[in-house]
Design a protein around this nucleic acid. Structure first.
Length: 387
RNA sequence: UCCCCGGUAGCUCAGUGGUAGAGCAAGCGGCUGUUAACCGCUGGGUCGAUGGUUCGAAUCCGUCCCGGGGAGCCA
C-alpha cells in the first residue's frame, strides 16, 4: 500500500508472517544490518551476494555483458566460442595453468627423463587459455567480424587490485581493418556499453555514485559525450617529457614501456578521460603485431582509463607471412609451434585487427569499485580458490 | 615475486611492558509512523600461528600464515 511517510513509495501490510529459514546462530551470521568493508565481504564470498553492494555489482555485470553482446550482434559480429583448453599461448601473454590427467605421484617418463606428455590426455601438453586471440583470428579470416567473450586464465603471481587468475575477456577481431578502425571499434563499444548502463541500471549506478565513487554518473556521461583522446606513442613520450612539476620514478625516453605512473598521468592529469595510445616500439610488443612502415614501431594500441589504467590492449595483426616469420625469428619463437597460425597467412591473408577488453576492469571502472575482486562473483587470486 | 601498512569480541577499531576496552551487531526487556530509530540490561576474547627476550608480553625480537595498498606483468 502507498506509504504516508516521506522517502519511501510503499509499505507492506502483512496478515501473516512465516519464517522459512531461521538464521541458525545470529551471533555468527557474518552479514549484519550494518556497513561492512568489501575486504571482509571477500572472505565470505558465498554470503556477500546478499549485500546491497555486491547485489548491485552483479546486476551491473549482467547488464554490461548483455550490452556488449547486443552491440556486436547489431553490428554484424558473430560470437565465437574459442577453446578453454589450448596447446598454444599468445606469445607469453602470461604464465599458464596446466591441464593434465597424469598421476602426479607417478609421472610417466621419456627416455631422457622428462615427463612424457604423449601419455597425457591430449597426447601433448595442454593448458588453460590465456587469450582467445589466435583462435578467433582463424574465424575472422572466414566470417569477417567475430568476437570472443569468455573466461581467461593466467597463473601469474600478481597481487594487485587489477589482476585475477580467472577473468573474463572480450576479444573482437575484424577483417579488412587497420589500427584506426580497431581504436574506433573499441571506443564505440565502450560508449555503447556505458550508454546502456546509464539508462538501464540507473538505480544501481546511483547507489555506486552515492556510496562508492562520488561523481560516477557524471563521469560516465562525460565519457559518452566526448571523444577519446588519441595519440601516438611518440607523442605520449613527448607530452610526458614536458610534464611540468612532475617527477617520474621511471625516466621517460622513446623506447620505454609506459609505466603505471605514466599511464596515470596521461589519463588523470593530462586528458582527464580515456586515452588511446597507438604505435608502440616493436621491441616492447608481441610478435604478431603489424610492423609499421617506419620499421621501428608496430600498429598496437592501448586504451587507458583514469583510475584503472589499461582496459583495452589491441593491434593490427601482421598479415604478411614473410614479415611475421622475420618477427618470430627475432624473438626466437619456434615457427612450427605456430604452424596453424602461419597457415592463416599462407592460404589467403587479409589485413585484420582486434583487441582484448578486460571485463572485470571495465566493470570496476563503471561501478567505481577499486578492486576487480569485487567485480566477479568468486574471485580467483594467488592462494585463493576456496569458494 | 618485491616494497610498505595491518591481523585484538560477529564487524570497525582503541589499547604500545604490569588484571583485555569502545561503538556497532547479537540476546532479553521497554518505548516508538519508523525509515543507519531510541532507552536499559546481558552474553561474548587461545589479542593470526610459533619460537625467543623478560619477574611479567596483545605490546619487544625472529620465523611463518593471512589481509590491504603500491610496484612489476598485463586485461
Amino acid at each position: 500500500m502507498p506509504s504516508p511517510a516521506k522517502g519511501q513509495p510503499f509499505e507492506m501490510q502483512a496478515d501473516d508472517i512465516r519464517v522459512i529459514g531461521w538464521v541458525d546462530d545470529p551471533e555468527t551470521y557474518p552479514i549484519q544490518p550494518k556497513a561492512h568493508t568489501l575486504e571482509f565481504l571477500r572472505e565470505v564470498a558465498h554470503l556477500r551476494p546478499r549485500t546491497n553492494a555486491i547485489g548491485a555489482a552483479t546486476r551491473v555485470r549482467h547488464t554490461l555483458a548483455k550490452a556488449i553482446h547486443r552491440f556486436f550482434d547489431e553490428d554484424g559480429f558473430f560470437w565465437v566460442n574459442t577453446p578453454i583448453i589450448t596447446a598454444s599461448d599468445a606469445e607469453g601473454a602470461g604464465a599458464l595453468f596446466r591441464v593434465s590427467t597424469l598421476d602426479f605421484a607417478n609421472l610417466p617418463r621419456a627416455a631422457d627423463g622428462t615427463v612424457d606428455f604423449a601419455q597425457d590426455f591430449f597426447g601433448r601438453e595442454a593448458f588453460l587459455t590465456v587469450s582467445g586471440q589466435l583462435a578467433v583470428e582463424a574465424y575472422c579470416l572466414a566470417l569477417t567480424k567475430v568476437y570472443t567473450f569468455g573466461p581467461t586464465f593466467r597463473a601469474e603471481n600478481s597481487n594487485t587490485s587489477r589482476h585475477l587468475a580467472e577473468f573474463w575477456m572480450i576479444e573482437p577481431e575484424i577483417a579488412f581493418a587497420d589500427l584506426a578502425d580497431d581504436a574506433t571499434l573499441a571506443e564505440r563499444l565502450l560508449k555503447h556499453a556505458f550508454t546502456t548502463l546509464l539508462s538501464g541500471r540507473q538505480d544501481d549506478l546511483a547507489f555506486f555514485d552515492e556510496r562508492i565513487e562520488k561523481g560516477l554518473v557524471a563521469k560516465l556521461e562525460g565519457i559518452v559525450a566526448s571523444e577519446f583522446v588519441r595519440m601516438d606513442y611518440g607523442e605520449a613520450i613527448r607530452i610526458l617529457q614536458r610534464a611540468k612539476g612532475t617527477k617520474f620514478e621511471f625516466p621517460v625516453a622513446w623506447g620505454i614501456d609506459l609505466q603505471s605512473e605514466h599511464e596515470r598521468w596521461l589519463t588523470e592529469q593530462h586528458a582527464k578521460r580515456p586515452v588511446i595510445v597507438m604505435n608502440y616500439p616493436k621491441e616492447i610488443k608481441a610478435f604478431y603485431m603489424r610492423l609499421n612502415d617506419d620499421g621501428r614501431t608496430v600498429a598496437a594500441m592501448d586504451v587507458l582509463a583514469p583510475g584503472i589504467g589499461e582496459i583495452v590492449g589491441g593491434s593490427q595483426r601482421e598479415e604478411r607471412l614473410d614479415v611475421l616469420d622475420a618477427r618470430m625469428a627475432e624473438r626466437g619463437i619456434d615457427r612450427e609451434h605456430y604452424s596453424w597460425y602461419r597457415d592463416l597467412r599462407r592460404y589467403g591473408t587479409v589485413p585484420h585487427a582486434g583487441f582484448g577488453l578486460g571485463f572485470e576492469r571495465t566493470l570496476a571502472y563503471v561501478t567505481g569499485l577499486s578492486n576487480v575482486r569485487d567485480a566477479i562473483p568468486f574471485p580467483r587470486t594467488p592462494g585463493n580458490a576456496r569458494y
